[in-house]
């Protein structure tokens, strides 16, 4: 209970992201219904639930990968202006996506460019925001590869020659190199071997703390949620059925479904 993520240190009293009434319908079927939360600077929010609970719909609407049916998501920009990211014109959304947000996909192949080298994967995002000096870009890329524990001699290799865990670490470097203020992560440890997961979790936990990242992390793995998230939303059938401090939700679940989820986890 005492070894979860370190609390956010920010004292800014404005939420970075305020979501209200977020709804996504696929024809007659509900993806997510009336989801609302505030995300504060430096805070990591975990969204947990089983397949089909709507957690990925929430994330994809916020990240601009899906068009929300209804709701608002007020994002506080660096300049203090607040914009609704669910209703942003495409050009403005792309600009923010380059400078202020990052997305880490479950499958690293969806977040990486598989046809270019590891170094280019990390260098491209900083070039896209204006960096031009080759030496500086390469230095920055190497620094990030080191941070995510990828050996320097692999910088000119293609990601397709990397293991799954290494690809995922490369994707994280690519996502964080522009110093985003908000990171969306979709099952970041899904599909990895357990020993590889532990290394990635340790890395994510360290980066989140050191960089003071704000993040929304979708996961079905309650142990991952406990380690990374300050606060949890539990989803079932498209709706948030319980929310609160991570260790409170996991150690004293109130809703029948949360109790079932927590009691169904095997402890080796």
């Amino acid at each position: 209970m005492t070894s979860g993520p370190q609390p956010p240190t920010s004292t800014i009293e404005v939420p970075l992201l305020a979501v209200r009434g977020l709804t996504k319908r696929y024809g007659g079927r509900v993806g997510c219904l009336d989801v609302g939360f505030d995300l504060w600077p430096g805070e990591v929010l975990g969204v947990v639930g089983e397949s089909g609970s709507g957690k990925t719909s929430v994330l994809q609407c916020l990240a601009g990968l899906l068009q929300a049916t209804a709701g608002t998501a007020a994002f506080a920009q660096r300049d203090g202006a607040v914009v609704d990211i669910l209703r942003l014109p495409e050009a403005a959304r792309r600009r923010l996506a380059r400078t202020d947000w990052a997305m880490v996909q479950q499958n690293p192949r969806d977040g990486l460019r598989m046809g270019v080298t590891a170094g280019a994967n990390v260098g491209e995002p900083i070039m896209a925001v204006g960096a031009r000096h080759y030496g500086r870009i390469r230095r920055e890329a190497l620094g990030w590869l080191r941070q995510v524990e990828i050996p320097e001699e692999r910088v000119d290799d293609l990601p397709s020659t990397f293991s799954g865990g290494m690809q995922q670490r490369l994707q994280i470097a690519r996502a964080l190199v522009t110093r985003p203020r908000l990171v969306f992560m979709d099952e970041p440890t899904g599909g990895l071997d357990v020993s590889v997961q532990a290394r990635l979790l340790d890395l994510l936990r360290r980066l989140v703390t050191d960089l003071g990242l704000s993040a929304v992390i979708v996961t079905h793995d309650l142990a991952v949620a406990r380690l990374l998230a300050h606060r949890l939303l539990v989803m079932q059938g498209g709706e948030v059925i319980e929310s609160g401090l991570t260790d409170r939700v996991l150690d004293d679940p109130q809703h029948p479904y949360t109790q079932l989820l927590v009691s169904s986890v095997l402890h080796p």
Binding site: M1, T2, Q6, P7, P8, W40, E43, H230, R231, G244, L245, T246, R248
Partner: peptide, 17 residues
């Protein structure tokens, strides 16, 4: 609120089990 509790734990209150 959860973030208030986290701040209390960070600055004011420890727990040993």
């Amino acid at each position: 609120e959860p973030r208030q509790i986290l701040d209390v734990r960070r600055r004011s209150m420890g727990y040993v089990s």
